[in-house]
């Protein structure tokens, strides 16, 4: 694969099979620096499997992937240094407080303690958990946990964020705050974000491009305008992402 410097993630014919079942089917897509890519699709469409393959946590059955010029299969550890992954329903150690949770992640990333201390303060401030720094995670609300999850992925200084359903189960206000935070990270820090979600209006709000994945196949990808034209033809009306998604989904 030929990649230039602005390409952060690129896959070519990436495939994952579990027995006879194809979880991801010849997936090819490119993620460029500083863009937010919305990864859409019904449950079980293979979004999470794709993310796991990109981090080298699962071995692809065939095809290849490149993350910042590295092969996730062979350089899993280096790839995981670059990627900040927040899983769906990110878990925490309930007995630790926010600072301790971040300290553990920092230690796993080999960040020296003195440096970690400053970073923890910085990111707790950024995600708005400064006042809850010494509160046990067990007492956190869902929104607070998601924000702590964001702080945990940021502390390793990643080049790209993989966020799996970051706004799932959040109330509208908390979800908006999180979206603001993600957009701010992109605008202020030129962060690349690969985001999977079912909340189409939220994705529409923040994504530069989207990809729609159904049954392991990426059926469409591009900007909202491109998809709109592709599916509804040229016209003055702009369709919402929801309308486009449902049309793709129903027509397969």
């Amino acid at each position: 694969m030929v990649t230039d410097d602005s390409v952060v993630v690129q896959t070519k014919d990436l495939t994952k099979q579990y027995g006879n079942q194809v979880a991801v089917n010849h997936l090819s897509f490119t993620l460029r620096e500083g863009e937010i890519f919305g990864f859409l699709g019904p449950n079980g469409a293979g979004k999470t499997t794709t993310l796991l393959m990109l981090m080298g946590l699962t071995r692809p059955s065939s095809g290849e992937a490149v993350v910042c010029g590295l092969d996730p299969v062979r350089r899993a550890k280096d790839v995981k240094r670059i990627i900040g992954y927040m899983p769906e329903n990110v878990g925490f150690y309930p007995e630790l407080d926010a600072v301790q949770s971040l300290e553990y992640i920092a230690a796993l990333n080999g960040i020296p303690e003195s440096e970690a201390r400053n970073k923890i303060d910085e990111f707790l401030e950024l995600v708005g958990l400064k006042d809850e720094a010494y509160k046990k995670v067990a007492n956190f609300s869902r929104g607070m946990k998601q924000r702590l999850g964001i702080a945990e992925v940021l502390i390793k200084d990643p080049k790209v964020l993989f966020l799996d359903e970051p706004t799932l189960g959040l109330d509208p206000e908390a979800a908006l705050n999180l979206i603001d935070l993600i957009v701010r990270l992109k605008e202020e820090h030129n962060m690349t974000v690969l985001l999977s979600s079912h909340h189409l209006h939220q994705v529409q709000r923040m994504s530069d491009r989207v990809g729609i994945m159904i049954n392991g196949t990426m059926v469409a990808q591009g900007t909202l305008d491109q998809l709109s034209k592709e599916k509804f033809g040229l016209g003055d009306k702009t369709y919402s992402l929801e309308e486009i998604y449902l049309k793709y989904f129903r027509e397969g």
Binding site: M55, D78, K80, I83, P87, G91, F92, Y93, I105, K156
Partner: peptide
């Protein structure tokens, strides 16, 4: 509690 994937997605 969903922490295993978080730990294994760190560079270790």
């Amino acid at each position: 509690q969903g922490t295993l994937i978080k730990i294994t997605s760190q560079p270790i």
